Amino acid sequence: EINVTSHGEEQAKHWIELAKRMNLDVEVEIHGDKIIITIK
Score class of each variant (00 low, 15 high):
residue 7 H to A: 11
residue 29 E to A: 05
residue 7 H to E: 11
residue 33 D to E: 09
residue 4 V to G: 07
residue 5 T to R: 06
residue 21 R to L: 15
residue 16 I to H: 04
residue 26 V to L: 05
residue 13 K to Y: 11
residue 10 E to I: 08
residue 15 W to T: 06
residue 10 E to G: 06
residue 8 G to W: 15
residue 14 H to S: 08
residue 30 I to L: 03
residue 32 G to I: 09
residue 19 A to M: 12
residue 13 K to A: 07
residue 23 N to S: 08
residue 13 K to D: 12
residue 38 T to H: 08
residue 22 M to T: 03
residue 5 T to G: 04
residue 24 L to P: 01
residue 24 L to S: 02
residue 9 E to M: 14
residue 15 W to I: 15
residue 12 A to F: 13
residue 24 L to D: 01
residue 4 V to N: 05
residue 33 D to Y: 02
residue 36 I to K: 04
residue 6 S to A: 14
residue 11 Q to L: 15
residue 39 I to K: 01
residue 20 K to N: 10
residue 1 E to F: 07
residue 25 D to I: 15
residue 14 H to I: 15
residue 13 K to T: 05
residue 37 I to R: 00
residue 7 H to I: 13
residue 36 I to D: 02
residue 17 E to L: 03
residue 21 R to T: 09
residue 2 I to S: 08
residue 9 E to K: 07
residue 6 S to G: 08
residue 3 N to D: 07
residue 24 L to Y: 05
residue 12 A to D: 12
residue 14 H to F: 14
residue 40 K to L: 03
residue 21 R to V: 14
residue 20 K to Q: 10
residue 8 G to M: 14
residue 31 H to M: 09
residue 2 I to R: 05
residue 9 E to D: 11
residue 9 E to H: 09
residue 21 R to Q: 11
residue 12 A to V: 13
residue 5 T to E: 08
residue 38 T to F: 04
residue 8 G to S: 12
residue 27 E to K: 11
residue 15 W to K: 07
residue 35 I to P: 00
residue 4 V to E: 04
residue 11 Q to E: 11
residue 26 V to T: 01
residue 19 A to V: 10
residue 35 I to R: 00
residue 26 V to I: 12
residue 27 E to A: 08
residue 24 L to G: 01
residue 7 H to R: 10
residue 6 S to V: 15
residue 23 N to H: 07
residue 32 G to F: 11
residue 7 H to P: 06
residue 29 E to K: 10
residue 36 I to F: 02
residue 9 E to W: 15
residue 23 N to A: 09
residue 3 N to V: 14
residue 11 Q to N: 12
residue 22 M to G: 03
residue 10 E to M: 08
residue 33 D to N: 10
residue 31 H to L: 09
residue 10 E to L: 06
residue 7 H to L: 10
residue 20 K to R: 04
residue 16 I to L: 12
residue 36 I to A: 01
residue 26 V to A: 02
residue 25 D to V: 14
residue 37 I to M: 02
residue 17 E to P: 08
residue 27 E to N: 06
residue 28 V to I: 12
residue 39 I to V: 05
residue 38 T to E: 02
residue 24 L to I: 09
residue 35 I to D: 00
residue 30 I to E: 02
residue 1 E to T: 13
residue 22 M to Q: 03
residue 31 H to G: 06
residue 22 M to Y: 09
residue 16 I to K: 03
residue 38 T to Y: 03
residue 4 V to F: 05
residue 29 E to S: 11
residue 18 L to I: 11
residue 3 N to T: 10
residue 20 K to I: 15
residue 11 Q to D: 13
residue 12 A to N: 14
residue 9 E to Q: 08
residue 30 I to M: 04
residue 38 T to S: 03
